[in-house]
Design a protein around this nucleic acid. Structure first.
Lengths: 132, 132
DNA sequence: TTGCTCCTCACGTCACGTGAGGTGGC
DNA sequence: TTGCTCCTCACGTCACGTGAGGTGGC
């Protein structure tokens, strides 16, 4: 949570956008887009303007990548991550937020089932192809 | 393959776009879009201009719907269906077309595996949600 | 005749892709 | 100094969504 200054001694390893792209499998454009809309803002910038990502940023992007197959809009991802974050703060651990998380969980479960249905449809198509 | 005239006696049951939308789960707009780009053209029109779909059209749309989870572009679907169709005609059953079909099959198999990977990522995300 | 279905524009949206032109970092 | 990485516009794309305004079908 605490933001570290790049100029601090024994600076933690920060990464440029290219390294993050490699580690997440997301494109440079996608990472910039997420920065723009606030889904995941780069933690800092170099003097020259290069985005700097921390290890936490990377972890969060890996979570985002895991959400993608469930077909969330980026706005929905922002909302979901906000609730999860707030539950990690003492002040945000309210019945209201717990309720919201439960709703997101139910929704995610339904999306997972839809994905399984899609896999079933894909398999039916593969079977049709094999019959040719 | 033979196109039947709507005015023929004992006309086969043709369907309006709404019925097709219901039976396929595709939106009216999606069906019109597929008509526009030639992925699936309505077999006919009423005098007043209403699209008419045959049972064959419906079957084809159900195939298209099964292809969707594999993430094909509409252009790719057109190309794939064209190859399958041509193999059903005597004149189109060429080594060339069989080769093309084999390539599409391999690609479809890879796409299926990608879908399974996505399901795995979704499950990792669900697990993360449960840990909250 | 009523109302429900369907029609054609045509602009909007979402999540980026793709240059163009320029500069930072080691 | 070189070249590779990164930057910001800004327009393009794909697969539709969403009205607006009008008409067909039973």
């Amino acid at each position: 949570v605490s933001q570290r200054d790049v100029s601090e001694d024994a600076a933690p390893q920060t990464m440029h956008i290219g390294e993050i792209a490699e580690k997440t499998g997301l494109s440079l454009r996608t990472l910039r887009h997420y920065d723009e809309i606030g889904l995941l803002r780069a933690s800092g910038r170099t003097e020259g303007g290069f985005r700097l990502y921390t290890h936490d940023d990377l972890q969060r992007l890996l979570v985002i990548r895991r959400m993608k197959p469930l077909g969330y809009s980026l706005e929905e991802m922002i909302a979901l991550l906000r609730v999860v974050d707030s539950l990690h703060e003492a002040s945000g651990d309210t019945p209201d937020n717990r309720e919201r998380l439960a709703e997101f969980s139910d929704d995610a479960q339904r999306r997972r089932e839809a994905l399984v249905t899609q896999l079933g449809m894909a398999d039916e198509f593969l079977e049709l192809l094999r019959q040719q």
